[in-house]
Design a protein around this nucleic acid. Structure first.
Lengths: 224, 224
DNA sequence: GGCCCAGTTCACACGCCGTTCACAGTAGGG
DNA sequence: CCCTACTGTGAACGGCGTGTGAACTGGGCC
C-alpha cells in the first residue's frame, strides 16, 4: 500500500497521531512539485491553519499528470459554507477538531472505497475524431496531432468532458482557470478563438457560441 | 430533482430541519418494500436510535433492482468502530449530533458528486412534443430543432414551466426580462409573435392570447 | 354600420455581444 | 541575460438580437 500524502509540511500533529496509531503510512509534502516522489494512495489536506492555501493545494493535487484520489479535506466548522462550490477538489471532508476515531474512520472508508474502484476522471477523452490523452497532455484530431498550450488543453478538456452542455464564461473561469475572477470575460473569448483556429476550419464548429449565454462543445443537432 | 429518501419513518427532526431549510425535497420511508414509490436522488439513514436496524435498512437499500446512491449514514460517535467493516453500505457518514451546516454540506457534496459522476438525466422542460433542454440551451418540437434566440428561449421556458397558467405582460416582463418595466408592453407581443412563428403553423396555438389579460401556454380552455 | 379597443404584424434603428487584432506582462529555456 | 512562447487585457469592428413606433386587423358595443 502506498503512503498517504499529507499537506502541509510539517503535517498537523493531530492527523499524524491518528495515522500512526492506525498503522497507516504517510508522507508530508508542502507543494505539488515535490509530489514526483512516488505514488500515493490518497491525500489529506488540512485547511485548519490556512484555508485559502489549502484549497489551492488541493486543487493542484487534483490536476497535473497524476491526480491524487481520494482526497480528504480537514476544515474548521466556519468554513463549511464554502465547501459546496469547491466540491470538485475533495472527496470527503472532516470537521476539525474531530474525534480521532472519526478521522480514522474517514480515512479507512476512503481507502476501502478506493481499492474497490474509485472513479477518477477518464484518462482519455474522445469526441468523434478528437482525442485528448490526459496522461501525456497530447491532443489529436483526425489523427493529426494538435499543438495546444496548457490553458487551451485544459479548456478543451473541460468542454469535451460534457458535450452539448452550455457553460457560461463565469463557469469556465472558475472551473478551468480555477479561481474567483472579476472581469476578464474576454479571456475566455480569446482562448476559444485560439482553440477554434487550431482545430482547423473544418472542426471549428465543434465549439459553438450560445449568444448571451456561453459556449457549447459538440452536439449541434441533438439527434442523440 | 428527485427527493431524498429518509429512514426511518418518521424522519428524525434534526435531519428534517436541515433539509427543509436547505430547500431539499425528502420523503420518509420505513422499509425498502415501499421504495417503489418513486426514484430518489439519494438516501439518508439515521442509525442514531437503532443502529442494527439502520444497517439492515441501508443494506437493503443498496440491493434489489434499483440500488440507491449516494447514501449518507448518521451514526453516534460510539458506532464509529463498526463502520469500517460496513463500508459497502454507505458512501458518507455523519457523526451525530452534528452541526446543521455540516449535515447540509455533506448532503450537498454527495448530491453534487453524484450528479457529476453519474450524469443523471439532463434537466428538460417538456410539453407534448416540445422539449427544452436547460443544460444545452436547445429546443425542439416534433424532433425538429428550434433555432431560438436567448430571449425567445427564456420566454418559452418560463411559459412552458407553468402550462395553462395565464401571465400578464407585466408579470412576464418582470419574471423573464427581470426588471421593473414601464411601458413597452409591446415588447412582449412581438416576442410572442416571433415564438409562434418559429413554433410553426401547426403549433402556434400552443401560446394562446387571453384578451385584455395576457398569454397562456398550452392547456386550451376546452381541454382542461 | 361606425367607432373604439386590443392584439397582430411590419419595418427600422439602437446597442449589446462576440470576434478579431494588437500589445504588454511574464515565465521558462538556452 | 536574452529570447521565445504563452497568457491576459484593451480597443475597434461587425452582426444581429432586441425594443419601439406605426400601420393593420378583428371583434365588441352602442
Amino acid at each position: 500500500m502506498h503512503p498517504l500524502l499529507i499537506w502541509p509540511d510539517p503535517a498537523p500533529p493531530d492527523i499524524v497521531r491518528v495515522l500512526d496509531l492506525a498503522g497507516i503510512a504517510w508522507e508530508a509534502l508542502g507543494n505539488h512539485s515535490e509530489a514526483g516522489a512516488g505514488p500515493f494512495s490518497g491525500a489529506i489536506v488540512s485547511a485548519e491553519e490556512n484555508p485559502a492555501a489549502a484549497y489551492t493545494a488541493a486543487r493542484s493535487l487534483r490536476r497535473g499528470d497524476s491526480p491524487i484520489a481520494p482526497l480528504l479535506l480537514c476544515v474548521r466548522g466556519s468554513e463549511l459554507g464554502d465547501l459546496v462550490e469547491r466540491s470538485d477538489i475533495f472527496d470527503d471532508f472532516c470537521v476539525v477538531p474531530a474525534h480521532p476515531s472519526e478521522l480514522e474512520a474517514r480515512v479507512r472508508h476512503l481507502l476501502l472505497r478506493e481499492s474497490a474502484g474509485f472513479e477518477l476522471p477518464p484518462e482519455i477523452v474522445t469526441y468523434e475524431s478528437l482525442e485528448l490523452n490526459v496522461e501525456t497532455y497530447q491532443a489529436s484530431i483526425d489523427g493529426r496531432p494538435l499543438d495546444l498550450t496548457y490553458m487551451e488543453y485544459e479548456l478543451l478538456k473541460f468542454l469535451a468532458s460534457s458535450p452539448g452542455r452550455v457553460f457560461t464564461r463565469e463557469t469556465l473561469l472558475t472551473q478551468v482557470w480555477g479561481y474567483e475572477y472579476y472581469g476578464g470575460a474576454r479571456t475566455v473569448d480569446v482562448h476559444i478563438r485560439r482553440l477554434r483556429a487550431k482545430l482547423g476550419e473544418e472542426h471549428a464548429g465543434l465549439i459553438q457560441t450560445v449568444r448571451s449565454v456561453g459556449y457549447r462543445f459538440g452536439e449541434s443537432r441533438w439527434g442523440s
